[in-house]
Write a protein that binds this DNA or RNA. Structure first.
Lengths: 113, 113
DNA sequence: CCGGTATATTGACAACTGTCGATACATCGA
DNA sequence: TCGATGTATCGACAGTTGTCAATATACCGG
């Protein structure tokens, strides 16, 4: 039998969903998606994300000054974004290097279609 | 002189921003964008949005049952979504009819590019 | 004008969140 | 090994948020 016609958006834990405007979301789909949008629902995290995007690869210590937040706060926000799958981090020596996850953003764009 | 090359995303209050990944966001841009994403950062609101999208035009009273929430709660969520510009409401007699604002969703998609 | 109905607002409360200081952990250079 | 540095975690606290019962407001039919 043929696969579903509408492209499904891949979320964490193997949960998928059709684009927002195509079919009503199920409970777990909505919960999963909301987690990602909630991660974007904070000005500091949005600016953090755009800083990492602009730099390509940015270490945590280089985010404190431009964002004007303490080190624990930066660490908190990077964790939230990483948990949402929007950021990926690699520890290099003492430094934690962060990069954008383009596929994740693209999945979000698809979910808004 | 030529206009800016990158398309700007239109937000409330005449605030605009370049796509997230193109240039670091300014403070007010981030605050404005975060408000919209925060509106999407709740499972009930995401399901509400998808219900309205599926129905084309849906009245508040038809949302209580499928969402399993009280009438004041539905009213609260529609207000949050409307404030974020994602939903537009028109009072018809006793009923409040809600519709999606496609341009707003498209602007969000553009901001994620 | 009155009773019924759809919606908005208010007040209250528990749960969550953003923030920072203090502290612990990890890694490097000397 | 030791001190310095970058990061994560913990504890605390103020502010925000999702929820509902109660109430107020708006609108319709008779």
């Amino acid at each position: 039998m043929a696969a579903k016609r509408t492209a499904l958006i891949e979320l964490d834990d193997g949960v998928c969903c059709a684009p927002l405007l195509v079919a009503p979301l199920a409970d777990d789909e909505a919960t999963e998606l909301a987690l990602v949008f909630a991660a974007l629902g904070d000005p500091v995290r949005l600016r953090l994300l755009s800083l990492v995007a602009a730099g390509g690869e940015v270490c945590s210590c280089d985010l404190e000054a431009p964002l004007g937040k303490s080190q624990p706060t930066i660490s908190h926000h990077t964790k939230v974004l990483a948990d949402a799958g929007l950021l990926t981090g690699e520890k290099r020596g003492r430094w934690m290097m962060w990069r954008i996850v383009p596929d994740r953003l693209e999945a979000l764009r698809a979910a808004l279609a």
